[in-house]
Amino acid sequence: MSRQNIGFELKLRQGEKLKKLELSDKVKKQIHKQTGKNYTAYLKEFIGNEKDFNILNKAFDNAMQKSLPNDIEEHCLFCKKQSDDFGDKLCQKYYLQMNITFMMASNEFISLVSQNKHIYNDKSSLKKLTAKFFDCFRFIKGEGKMFLDVDRLCRFTLECGFLAITNMFAKSDTLSNLKIINSTLNEIDEKDLNNKINQSEDDNYLELQRVFFESKRRFYKDEIFINEREKPIPNPQKKLDIKQPTVVHYVLYYNYLQQSKDFGYFENHPEGKVTAIKNLIKDEGLKTTYKYFQLKYNHFTNYPSNRIAQNQVANISYVANTMLQAFPEAQKIALLELEKAILKSR
């Protein structure tokens, strides 16, 4: 999609008037049959329901009205009932050019969504982007004109696209996500190189895309590192009926204590988060580094879906029923999350 703003201005010669054409019912039916689903129907579909569309459309109509010339009613013969000629209705020119702008912009937006299937398939992201679409129009007060800020819309599309991709990744396994990420980064590099060779402008915000996918690659590489570190080391001399808390258990344990306010957040420590974690590791006698503990802590705290997951059922159960017995509020929170994690495994 070009970054050029979209707008339409109707220019009439002095003395020219708009003419209203009356179509027969037969012609109206024929036009409807040929056009089928129009841009309004698509926008209602994208936003999810007619009620929310009407709210946005009403605010949009108010903005159009406020952009009209201030003295338009004073000079409108039609509004003052001094003429029955539709051409004397001065506001119609301005409404017509703004409605044409809206139609042109809507069709471009629909085309943009159709090119980004990951957004279209993620209904929450699609609804958010459609609401943002209405926010991308700029009105010229006193002139009855408006235009679509295309650069703003493209950036909103990137934002919602990144959200949709994140949601998609959350439903897939780590290795599959890394394959997609690496392939996408390779495509971005090729497009960027072609732009530099041909001295072309970047219309696809490649640098922003690169930043997003590189951050995701780092995240999923950390996932693999964490999962490898969590694999139990066989110890035939260890009694099977005695289970010692692992680093993961302690991370979950303190997460629930912080949620219940039985223990302060590491960030609130007078000497900072790192010192707080180092002190905890020392006090608990954990055989780990503060970097690994912090990495695992961020993994569960910043992304609750990693904590409330099928592969964490056993860990949450152990923490709730063994380590949190003296903390009823924290135990209650843990047991509720255990139920959610179990439901995900069914």
Rank of each mutant, 00 (worst) to 15 (best):
F300C: 04
N235G: 06
L175I: 11
P328D: 00
D84T: 15
Q258V: 06
S172K: 15
D52L: 12
L96H: 03
Y290G: 01
I119H: 00
F86P: 13
C79V: 13
S345E: 08
D122W: 08
R13Y: 01
D203I: 09
D262H: 11
L12R: 15
R210W: 04
L129W: 04
N38R: 03
H299Q: 08
A330Y: 02
D151S: 15
Q209W: 14
K261E: 09
F219K: 05
A164F: 06
I6K: 05
F109N: 04
E73C: 09
L96P: 04
D85E: 14
A63Y: 12
K51S: 07
A105K: 07
K58L: 08
N321I: 02
R13L: 08
L257V: 12
K261C: 12
L286R: 04
K128M: 11
K145P: 00
P328R: 05
V27S: 13
T40H: 04
K196M: 13
L112W: 01
A131N: 14
L295N: 10
L257S: 00
D202W: 09
I119E: 01
E201K: 14
K89T: 05
P328E: 00
K128G: 07
M1R: 10
N227R: 11
D25R: 10
K179E: 13
K127L: 05
V248N: 00
F133E: 00
G142Y: 14
N302S: 08
I342H: 12
E230M: 11
L280I: 00
K296Y: 08
A131W: 10
I224R: 00
E159W: 15
E187L: 03
G264E: 08
V211W: 09
I55S: 13
F225H: 07
T246E: 07
F212S: 00
L158E: 08
H75L: 14
L21A: 10
K344D: 01
F134C: 10
K296D: 01
Q259V: 02
L185G: 11
S215Q: 14
S24F: 08
D192R: 06
L148Y: 11
Y250W: 08
A105C: 05
A341M: 03
N38K: 07
A326W: 03
E201M: 13
L129N: 00
L12T: 06
D262K: 02
N268E: 13
M98E: 08
G7I: 02
S124E: 14
Y42G: 02
Y253L: 10
F219H: 10
R3K: 10
R152E: 13
T101K: 05
F266M: 03
T301E: 07
A309P: 01
M64H: 02
K296S: 06
I72W: 01
I180K: 02
L185H: 10
K26G: 06
